[in-house]
Amino acid sequence: MDEPSPKPILEIRNITKNFGGLTALNDVSFDLHPGEILGVIGPNGAGKTTLFDVITGRYRPSGGKVFHKGEDITGLKPHQIVQKGISRSFQLEVLFKNLSVFKHLVMSRHLHTQVGFWGSFFRTPGNRKEEEATEAEALELMRFVGLEVQGDRLGGNLSHGYQKSLGIAMALGPAPEILLLDEPLSALSPKRVTDILDLIRAIRDKGVTVMVIEHNMGALFRICDRVVVLSVGEKIAEGLPEEIKHNQRVIEAYLGGAVRA
């Protein structure tokens, strides 16, 4: 990392997270630069999801700080983090099981709906216009992620692949500047993997900075600008995909992980 990089949009500084006696993350630091796709890889149990949970306010770190554009956002609540323009998807399907896909996306626009309480209570014309705008945005999102045919289906009834797409669309709803994707490719068919990779590129092309957690290195390397490698809660490498591929420590961590698993 010799070349001078632009001012980071997100700085992870010495993040440590303990659960009881277990250390899930140990002194992890790295930067996220505007407009890039950063891959975070590592074997199972490396602490990748915990890292997302710490950044997005689900957990408070035991030590260390997170800065967003120079502002300390450590320990803010999830909804406050979303307001800052940092949004995330989930590894397991966290969905509103009994809501339709369309309603999901209307909900995901929650922050950007300016409807006041009284307006929506009395159904004022302004409120109705506002609601129509929200619905149009929801439709647009549906089209963007390729769910336009699934609009009326319930979240719980979607296939695994569509649930993944819906998860990403939900995270796009708040119109984030930074999007954190937690294993968007896991358990997908090769065709769907390509679709999702294209989608991630399209998201980046809209100006959103993307951080992707993946277990599967090969697919991720096709779209990443840079890669951070975690193993057993520690950062063991950071660099361009080409460098990482040949990094001895990374290979060991993966092989070791595979053997142990």
Binding site: T56, R58, K77, P78, H79, V82, Q83, S87, R88, F90, V94, L95, F96, K97, N98, L99, K103, V106, M107, S108, H110, L111, T113, V115, F117, S120, F121, F122, G155, M170, A171, G173, P174
Partner: peptide, 28 residues
């Protein structure tokens, strides 16, 4: 009317998934 309003929709989201509701910016 409350149930049909935005409040009712938020209630539904909170009921379906407390966690996801937080991450679309709802103060649960």
């Amino acid at each position: 009317r409350l149930e049909q309003s935005r409040l009712g929709r938020i209630a539904e989201a909170v009921k379906e998934s407390n966690l996801l509701a937080q991450f679309v910016g709802i103060r649960v």
